[in-house]
């Protein structure tokens, strides 16, 4: 029997070439550089360098400041992801039920989508300014001894609030389109079977939204890890006492501000591995529960 053979052509390779080139230039090459650099002690100007094995790793990763930063990053990412997803879901469900003026609600809720994190940070900074900030004054007026310049909890509250606010509208758009993708027939059928809207939501709507939720979860964790940099840089800059320093911000502090290339490369590599593990966990264990 003759096997069917398609004629090989180089055209498909040509089509994927730009994509491959982008990955190589903007991801693989810098990642390789970071790994290489993480084994070196090199002066900032690259005039002398020595190979030191894992010294950069042991110096930075074992330091109290890195461990503190790792702890904050874990809590911060968890809270930002959970809060921005749940709030967005709540808003999307409610906005989806509104009949009159629906588009006004939707547009208003999507409004903040186009705001870049540093801009959100600057706005938050103004609102929490101890001298002129309205939110700062408000919290103190209602009896909360609020001072994010000194109190670690208050500072974390500020960065989480701004990060969640910025992300809710993005999640809202996805959840809303997810909700609108659920067939009407399914909803109507479930209404006949069950009177409780809460129960209908958890047994019918939520499982049908699972692919969207999973996708958003991956996106939001990445957001909390990396993109919130702009918010932290424009608000607390990691203060007070390093209490709001995320791992990415620390890489920036040591590498860009402090010119310690080896140390910050080692941190980047560890961060890369952490995110890799996290992604694998998400796809292997959580995605199993998702039905498309």
């Amino acid at each position: 029997m003759k096997r069917v053979q398609f004629e090989h052509s180089s055209i498909p390779y040509l089509f994927v070439a730009p994509q491959i080139a982008i990955i190589v230039i903007f991801f693989l090459w810098p990642a390789a550089q970071a790994i290489y650099q993480s084994f070196l002690l090199e002066d900032a100007f690259g005039l002398s360098s020595q190979f030191v094995w894992f010294r950069n790793y042991s110096d930075t990763i074992l330091s109290t400041s890195w461990l503190q930063s790792a702890g904050f990053t874990a809590i911060f990412s968890l809270l930002v992801t959970f809060l921005s997803l749940s709030l967005a879901l709540l808003l999307a469900v409610k906005a989806n039920e509104v009949i009159r003026g629906a588009s006004t609600y939707k547009t208003t809720l999507m409004w903040a989508y186009a705001i870049a994190p540093p801009v959100a940070g600057l706005m938050g900074n103004l609102m929490f300014n101890p001298l002129i900030g309205d939110l700062y004054k408000f919290f103190n007026a209602i009896g909360w001894d609020f001072n994010h310049k000194l109190d670690a909890f208050d500072a974390s509250f500020v960065v989480i609030l701004i990060s969640v606010w910025k992300q809710v509208s993005v999640n809202f758009i996805f959840f809303l389109s997810g909700l609108q993708g659920i067939p009407k027939a399914v909803n109507e059928a479930s209404m006949m079977d069950c009177r409780s809207p809460t129960r209908r939501f958890w047994t019918i709507t939520f499982p049908l939204l699972a692919p969207t939720t999973f996708f958003l979860m991956v996106i939001n964790i990445t957001y909390a890890f990396f993109e919130t940099f702009g918010i932290i840089d424009t608000t607390t800059q990691g203060a007070p006492g390093g209490a709001t320093t995320t791992l990415v911000f620390k890489v920036y502090q040591d590498g860009f501000r402090g010119a310690d290339l080896g140390g910050s490369s080692a941190q980047s590599v560890v961060l890369m591995i952490l995110v890799l593990i996290l992604t694998v966990v998400q796809f292997r264990y959580i995605e199993r529960k998702v039905h498309y």
């Binding site: 203060a239 007070p240 006492g241 502090q253 402090g258």
Partner: peptide, 13 residues
């Protein structure tokens, strides 16, 4: 630059 960050951190504390 990092030492100043360290100082800031402990002064905050």
């Amino acid at each position: 630059v990092q030492i100043r960050d360290v100082m800031y951190k402990h002064y905050d504390d």
